[in-house]
Design a protein around this nucleic acid. Sequence first.
RNA 1: GCUGGUGUAGCUCAAUCGGUAGAGCAACUGACUUGUAAUCAGUAGGUUGUGGGUUCAAUUCCUAUCACCAGCUCCA
Length: 639
Amino acid sequence: MNIVLADGSQRVLDEGSSVLDAAKNISLGLAKKAVAGEVNGKAVDLGYILNEGDKVKIITESDAEGLEILRHSTAHLMAQAVQRIYPDVKVTIGPVIKDGFYYDFDTGEMKFTPDDLQKIEKEMAKIAAEKIEVHRKVLTKEEAKKVFNDMGENYKIELIDSIEDPTVSLYEQGDFMDLCRGPHMDNTSKIKHYKLLSVAGAYWRGDEKNPQLQRIYGTSWFKKDELDSYLNMLEEAKKRDHRKIGKELKLFMVEDEIGAGFPIYLPKGGILRAVLEEYERQEHLKRGYDIVYGPAILKSDMWKRSGHYDNYGENMYFTKIDDVEFGIKPMNCVNHIMVYKSDLRSYRDLPLKLFELGTVHRHEKSGVLHGLMRVRAFTQDDAHVFCTPEQLNGEIVKIIDFVTDVMNVFGFEFEIEVSTKPEKYIGSDDNWEKATEALFEALKIKGLPYEINEGDGAFYGPKIDIKLKDAIGRFWQCATIQADFNLPERFDLTYIGEDGQKHRPIMLHRVILGSVDRFIGVLTEHFAGSFPVWIAPVQVKVMNITDDSLARCKEVEAALRAEGFRVQGDYRNEKINLKIREAQLEKIPHMIILGKNEVENGTITVRLRDGSNKNNLDLSDYISVLRGLDINKSLELWR
RNA sequence: GCUGGUGUAGCUCAAUCGGUAGAGCAACUGACUUGUAAUCAGUAGGUUGUGGGUUCAAUUCCUAUCACCAGCUCCA
């Protein structure tokens, strides 16, 4: 029997060979790492019997599909353990998710506790040690329903009813049987490195009218060090939580007396934000943007015309002035459109790029609020580019370059997604197609890889979403670029072309940092509060050892402040150890420590946040180092 | 918005069965003048998120409400 491998080469196998046999035939090492197979494009178990001419690919531990199969099998293992401990519990569904899996159980009155998780984990280890083989069975729907009916698993019967095929597959491992498409690991002993993480309530099929189920989340990996590093990452994420660091470093607060989702910036967070915003202004001016400002509330008629009233109204706040309804802006585009309309525009004026650090309000559901990451009032580094059709691709490319430049400054890598037409939208399909095509075209020009996110665009246009990757590998949605042919039509925007006729401009909506608030949250977690010199709220702290050096300290402090640096003095009657400890906890980049020696020599000593020391420096030399770090936006503590 | 959990001093957390709230740090006062991550002593600090109820008595039990945390979107 001949089979064809992924690289196009052929192999001769005995009749009745399985996928695993094929793997063995290629190499024993491959067979050892094999998890499942892909035959003629379909994922199958290792035990799948091959036929003449099959195209075979071996899925191994290093493939993404392999990891998914492991996690799915771990979900089954967990369900088996749960049913051994709690025979009355009914199983429902247990899919793979990012970094792990979950399984939903109908536990009746019983609720899982964290102690139960440990018990279940132990039982899982026991089942794995039993080295139970996993078998696939194909039954007709009627047969399968009978099997689950006998087991009392009514949820499975409901699932079978929603399957279209005449037959379904079941996976059996010892005393446990589950409806599943597969493929699966062929033996429970291959599941070694897993951890159950949390319990949560969830509804059957996500519908609150259905019974409430108990969901257990877990993670699973092929290697112990992979599991360990994932668990470490979770720990690290907890330590870096911007809500925790924000409180410790006194950056911001969310006060329930003021309102949920409305953050307040404390002085330390305030200066940090001001530095970021000033950087933004400079970068936009450099790239030919104009700075504009608009009001926070606009007459509802404007929102009706823009389509926000119908398509975004649930997320908006409204108020009344002298019996006229006004809407609080959830986006800045309408104001910028009015700026465009304030004058007659010629093709010579285009592209017109309007930038605003615009504060918007959106009604987010109470359950989704989260520190600075998800709020009800936030400021966007928002701009709208009005251009001709000929300029469109070039302008999108320029924005991608802008995003790249800014991300590099912070040391972020990023990934790109294109979101297409959603269910609720305005404008013609023709316009949507043109707009979407323009985004793809620009990405092609830049040669950037991207994924497609169907139906996730804004109601007025498709978008390029840029997700940045932080220091511990998490992704955050920040920058976005949206092509819009629709609002220019609704507001009848025009420019006079070379031909003397009126033409319709195209509008690009874009943000770079996205929400400045959210970006500050991301930066806080990315740097774990240890901000680079150029954005640190306090760049330098000057501290005296005894009162003998107090005068010199004040002199140094004043000199740094006069140079425009953010400097603070700590001249309390305390030991230097305490002052250093506190400055260290505040994550201040530089400490200048002055005692008798420095006063005598006329030099300064700088302790860096990393614990190292720079001795016998001239103040003027230090100032030039600090200036270099500051204006170059260096991520280093010294140069 | 829904489900579950949580809410005690500025911060981090205690308080048995319902018996009237306590510690560390911070703050304040005093002493100590100190060389690279916490000097010592003392003082003060609370309508236990908020409203209502049960009780002789409520941080504790019930109820409403607000806020926070996790999840609810990934569907064999």
